[in-house]
Design a protein around this nucleic acid. Structure first.
Length: 433
RNA sequence: GCGCCGGUCGUAUAGCGGCUAUUACAGGAGACUGUAAAUCUCCCACCCUAUGGGUAUCGUUGGUUCGAGUCCAACCCGGCGCA
């Protein structure tokens, strides 16, 4: 069984395209902004609110759900989507990002995007900080994690990650990879890439094996059903799952291209990946070139997901360079922390200028928050530390980014991508200082 | 009127003779990109030629001391009790 992805229209002269991706739990119109729900919940939003904000698909996290409540528990509750009452498509990240965030980046203030203000981190040669405290340590064939919840040790291999993801039961799952820090030197990036490639093959192997078993179990379920028709078995977590391989390689052109070739070419028993993730922690200026290098090589007929990326300017960049899926924590994290997206840039709703501002966050925004509440009220909720603050702010931010990608998609269908890009980015002020 | 207790940043506090007056909240601003995040950082007496420098300040005024928010006295204000 292969993942059904159809291209509807291409962006002339660029790598961009508009398409449709079919999963067992519904269709994803691409390009699409995937909403992050790490622990099987989009923080502060219930599924009705996620849907009303326009989100099509939710991405949860393998490592976090493995630790709590445990993948077996999720399976027992009917799988990720059933458990969290999200009826649409779901995805799970493999835990590869935690190799970075709990490893090399642990307690260092380094994150997914390396800002140009801290060039001190871009030292030419990798300093030896293997003694630095970290919760993830890379071993020969997997990663040793120290649980941030109770200090227990867990060794995650590619096979283990895939097994967990099959128990979680998301429609689209990811190969176990190592997200590297942009501060690593070429030697380390090369070693890490070899590791990620070896892990990709092993992930694929395990996935193919488990998918094969699943078909058998579906047949047997079917047989049972004919015998005892009054109690149909739950087949939810037995729906087909599709595996995306992840391209890494840091900022190095040769490594990125090598990775794109390897990941798109690797096969186990004649079967390769159903789609691709593009991973890594970037310096902002490296991102567009890296995406372009990779997407020029990846097969056109399979979907591509730019992992963890999310600012408006990044979405335009990604889409015109052939990205179909984005996911990012920004709308919900910024929302909870009082920052709201507007067409002219981000605002801090707690700032004194909004305290008595009875306008909506944005006049022409169709989200639930903007249709019903004022800036002053939301500012008040944040100042009062009320729970509804994060909810209303997240609803707006999710709507803003999801809708932005939908608008970009429509602009491609209408042959107006360049105009729309120019119009939007002309008004939108990214933060500069 | 007498007695007791107390007056430290907007508020609440720490401080018990030793040099930079603590902490929290409130207030002001910022950060956040496959979520260890409803989190974190900075500012919050005044002045300046502002990655630094200067001057203040613990109700008021005196006093003791090398040195006082801290000890003493008087006064002012508040609370409680007794008349």
């Amino acid at each position: 069984m292969s993942l059904n992805y159809k291209i509807q229209k291409k962006l002339i002269g660029k790598l961009g395209r508009v398409g449709i991706l079919e999963t067992a739990h519904g269709v994803i119109e691409t390009p699409a902004f995937v909403i992050v729900g790490t622990k099987a919940t989009v923080k502060s939003l219930n599924p009705e609110q996620i849907k009303e904000a326009g989100a099509q698909v939710v991405l949860a996290n393998t490592y976090h759900l493995y630790l709590q409540p445990g993948d077996e528990a999720v399976k027992k509750m009917g799988g990720l989507g059933k458990m969290m009452n999200w009826k649409g498509p779901t995805m799970t990240d493999s835990g590869g990002f935690q190799v970075f965030s709990l490893g090399a980046a642990y307690k260092k203030g380094i994150s997914k995007i390396l800002h140009p203000v801290d060039p001190s981190l871009m030292i030419p040669e990798r300093f030896d900080d293997s003694d630095a405290p970290r919760l993830a340590k890379i071993g020969q064939d997997g990663v040793s994690f120290t649980s941030h919840l109770d200090g227990s040790i867990h060794y995650i291999t590619p096979e283990k990650s895939i097994q967990i993801q099959h128990n979680l039961g998301a429609d689209i799952i990811f190969a176990f990879d190592e997200c590297t820090s942009p501060t690593e030197d070429l030697k380390y990036q090369t070693e890490a890439l070899d590791r990620t490639h070896a892990w990709a093959r092993r992930s694929l192997e395990e996935h193919n094996k488990l998918e094969g078993q699943k078909k058998h179990s579906q047949v047997s379920l079917h047989l049972t059903r004919t015998n005892r028709s009054e109690n149909p078995p739950k087949v939810f977590s037995d729906s087909p799952q599709f595996l995306f391989g992840i391209v890494q390689g840091g900022r190095e052109e040769s490594l990125r291209k090598k990775s794109a070739k390897f990941i798109s070419g690797v096969e186990v028993d004649g079967k390769g990946f159903d789609g691709f993730g593009i991973g890594g922690s970037f310096a902002k200026e490296d991102m567009s070139t890296a995406v372009k290098w990779v997407n020029e090589i990846l097969p056109e007929d399979k979907p591509r997901h730019l992992l963890g990326i999310g600012e408006p300017e990044d979405l335009f960049m990604g889409i015109e360079n052939g990205v179909d899926l984005f996911d990012c924590v920004l709308p919900t994290r910024l929302g909870r922390n009082g920052t709201l997206y507007t067409k002219t840039g981000k605002i801090h709703i707690e700032n004194v200028e909004f305290r008595l501002d009875t306008n909506p966050v944005e006049f022409d925004c169709q989200c639930y928050t903007c249709k019903n509440y004022s800036r002053a009220y939301i500012s008040h909720l944040f100042r009062g530390k009320e729970m509804l603050a994060g909810t209303l702010a997240s609803i707006h931010n999710v709507y803003f980014l999801v809708n932005l990608v939908k608008q970009i998609r429509q602009s491609i269908l209408d042959d107006k991508f360049e105009e729309y890009k120019k119009e939007f980015l002309g008004k939108y002020k990214t933060y500069e200082k």
